[in-house]
Amino acid sequence: MREQNQKLALQFKNVDFHYKNDAGGIPILKNMNLSVADGEFVSIIGASGSGKSTIFRLIVGLEEQTGGSIYLNEKRVTDRSGKVGYMPQQDLLMPWRTVQQNAALPLELHKESRLGRRAVPDLLEAFGLKGYEDKYPHELSGGMRQRVSFLRATLSGSNVLLLDEPFSALDAMTRLFMQEWLLEQWEEQQSTILFITHDISEALFLSDRIFVITDTPFTTLKEIEVPLERPRRQQDSDKKEVMKLKNNLLEQFRMRV
């Protein structure tokens, strides 16, 4: 297992949040606490509409919590825009920009030094995009578009990456390869990843811990440690303990369908 120091990358302390509507509000988080250690890979699973994306929107500052505070790298940050790498649910590439221009957007917005830009060609290669630098998004496969989007999140320069159902639109095969690839990148870059998915096997294969949303609004998330060593291979998911966990989780969700 990759070494994790005790530093916290992300922490929610007594966070309240509700969306405003005519009836007053839709409560999502109630006095919620959560911590993620630096270097951890954590997945969040839950039924759709349970508030997974909302947690991310709070972290990136698209929504403002109604109570409590959110800490990034152990600092309380009120204006969180530009502080976290965020890969939204759709790949959201700009059709008028090439692969390279799409990926380098964060550097462009922050007038990054040449130093930052110099890393781009190497990263494009590491992300399997060499030779496609000048292609437009509509010329790429789904897996490639996701990689561009992920590279863009990486180039935001933050140690915390939020990935919202990044692989849900991919076919099963591509998805398996992308999962292995994502783990490699994560090990390489020593980043902290929060990963939303509604695929239990995906969460088990990727994560150190899984947060399960069982009820909305929620105060705590049910935590599950994944009993697998790293580095992992897809076949590790067939181990007995993992299968048992998977069946348990499936059972839990079955009750709510």
Binding site: V60, V84, L92
Partner: peptide
Amino acid sequence: TSKELKELFQTLGASKRQLFFKLEVP
């Protein structure tokens, strides 16, 4: 202009000016 892209620019800390020239104009 896509609302989602606007939000993405926001999460990247883009200024109003950058939002206009790099997203809304194109």
